[in-house]
Each structure stands twice: as structure tokens, then as C-alpha cells.
Design a protein around this nucleic acid. Structure first.
Lengths: 165, 165
DNA sequence: AAACTGTAGTTGAAGGCTCATCTATTCCGC
DNA sequence: GCGGAATAGATGAGCCTTCAACTACAGTTT
């Protein structure tokens, strides 16, 4: 029924590949589908209700949390799990909206600071309740406290392996 | 520390928004980051090792699992959690690679069948072990059997809410 | 069978992401 | 303080996704 296994029957012998068994496939598919659907749903609802994609939202949030509402580009990229290039493009677009501006970093002539403007902060303030409600509706309202604990445990376990680099 | 809450202190009163508490934030952040990192990692490893993105991989897998290795476009889109438009573009690109071809649906003159070619199947056969190994390394090898069970439970619970529609 | 409505799929434009490349600045060893 | 290596960030091309039309066929009504 699933991806990775449909091929297993055709290459059954002991040839080194650690194929997934039926239970693993189910777990994997359930995780993958739910993750894709949830991320997609949250992004869509936020975008349609506020005009801010989840990617932009994360940038605005990161900036809003710092002293002075400003942050070095590369630090911001790390926080947002974004590549430098992607962040640079995104900040350019946020600049066009008037929500962020760039400023040369005083300490390091190579560096740039991304600064959240008042308009940007206002946009974030308007979007936050919408997003939180969305996360509640599609995630927390669906889960028991035990499942929330398991979700956290799972996430933190994977994070220890995957990053934060 | 996180997104959704950084704004909570500034709008503390009882104004209707069900903000996340500290525990919920941790769970949410852990899930979000781990999901983004894992999806990204798997896609990157597959793409770099085989030239097949995860999105393409899912299309090839879906086709490979059917009788005759062919499927209606819209059914394929549903299986891959893809929009019709996105799938249509993707199939066009796979057609250029010679991995899929289109064929008018005999039953329904409006419909198209996407058919996996032998080359496409061969490409999938080459990619599958790479992908499975990646999923094992970054997911299953990191988790206890209990965590795998929890992951499945979580995914299935969310799927009941989010779809499949 | 003509007209309407709904469904299947495609298309093109616009925005977003990735990758490779490029510039500017800092750091390091001498 | 000079020259090379490393770092910060920007940029442009190409690919991918989305969105809003658009075409074509099917099913339904009259």
C-alpha cells in the first residue's frame, strides 16, 4: 500500500536494504501525511486570513522577540530554519511591504541587521491570534494531554539528531 | 521564546484568543522544527543521491503500486496530497524525463491516465533503497518502539481530523 | 437534441525556493 | 600592514507551486 514497500516484494532477498515492515510503513505514512496536511493547512489558513505566509510569519516572530526587534541576517536564518539565500530574498520582499528594513551592522561591516518596523509589528499582532487559533483547532484540540506529551517527546528526540546545528 | 507566545504577554487580558501555554509552546515548537527538518533532510538526500525530489518520488511510487502502473490524474493528485494543477505540471516534467506518459482515459473522454514507463520504474527501483535508508537513519533508528507507536497514533489521530477528505 | 451545469485536466503568470556565483569585509599568520 | 582564507550577504537563473482562467467532455433537464 505504501511507497517504500511496494518495491520490497520485488527485491526480497538479503541485499542490504533495510526495508520497512508493515507496522513501520503505517507509522511512517501516518506521520508523513499528517505532517504534510497539517503544515499545509496552517499555512493556507494563515495566508488566506492575513496575507502572511507561515514562512514570513516566522521571520516576523523571530524579530519581534529580540531586543530592539532586530537581528543579524544569518542568526535570523538559523532561527527560521532557512537558508541564507532564502532569507535574503524573503527579507527583500518584506522590505517592499514596509514590514522590515535592513541596516548595516555596527559591529561587523559585512553584516546586516533586519529590523522589524512598526507596520511589521502591527501586521504580526493582527496575524498572531489567527494563527494560534489555527494551531489549536487542528492540533491541540485533536489531542489528549498524553498525546501532546508524546508529540513533544518525539519532536525533541528527533531534534537531538537533526539539529539545531 | 516562541512565536505564538511572544505576543501573549502584550495582549494578556481575556480577549478571546486561546494562547498557548509554555508546555504547549514547547510541544508545538518541537513538532514543527522536527517536522520541517526531517522533511527537508529526506528530500535533500533523495534529490542529491538520485535526482528525484520527494514529490516526484511519491508520484512514481503511487503509479508503481497500481495494476498496469497507471492512474487517473485526479486520483493520483489525491494520493500525493497534491493539487490538480501541481500534479499536471509535475507529470509534464516527468514526461520530459521519459518516466511517465499520458494516455487518454478510455472510460471518460475528459480524463487522462498517467502511465509509468519502464524507465520510470527503473528510476524508482534505483531510488527506493536510498530513500528507505534515509528514513531509517533519520527516523526509525532514532526512536524506541514505544515512540514509533506513539508516532503512528499521533499521525492517525491527526489524519482523522485533517483528511483524507 | 439544445442548453445548462458540473467535472477533468491544462495553461500561463507571478511569486517563492535552490543553487551557484559574486562582492565586500573580517580574520589570521607572518 | 599584507596576502590569503574564511565569513556575511546579495543576486540571478531555473525550477516548482499557486492561483485564476480556460478548454473539453459528461451528465441532466427540458
Amino acid at each position: 500500500m505504501t511507497a517504500d514497500v511496494s518495491l520490497a516484494p520485488r527485491d526480497p532477498g538479503p541485499e542490504g536494504t533495510r526495508w520497512l515492515d508493515v507496522e513501520e510503513q503505517r507509522a511512517w505514512r501516518a506521520w508523513l501525511y499528517s505532517a504534510q496536511l497539517l503544515l499545509d493547512r496552517l499555512d493556507r489558513e494563515l495566508t488566506h486570513a492575513t496575507g502572511i505566509s507561515h514562512a514570513y510569519y516566522e521571520i516576523l516572530v523571530a524579530l519581534s522577540e529580540t531586543e530592539g526587534r532586530m537581528m543579524r541576517m544569518s542568526e535570523l536564518a538559523d532561527r527560521c530554519l532557512s537558508s541564507r539565500s532564502r532569507l535574503s530574498h524573503a527579507v527583500s520582499r518584506l522590505e517592499e511591504r514596509g514590514w522590515v528594513r535592513r541596516q548595516v551592522c555596527p559591529d561587523d561591516g559585512r553584516g546586516q541587521l533586519a529590523v522589524l518596523t512598526d507596520d511589521g509589528f502591527a501586521a504580526l499582532e493582527a496575524a498572531a491570534p489567527v494563527h494560534v487559533e489555527s494551531v489549536r483547532t487542528h492540533l491541540f484540540d485533536q489531542l489528549s494531554p498524553e498525546q501532546v506529551a508524546a508529540m513533544r517527546d518525539l519532536g525533541e528526540t528527533l531534534l537531538r539528531h537533526l539539529g539545531p546545528r
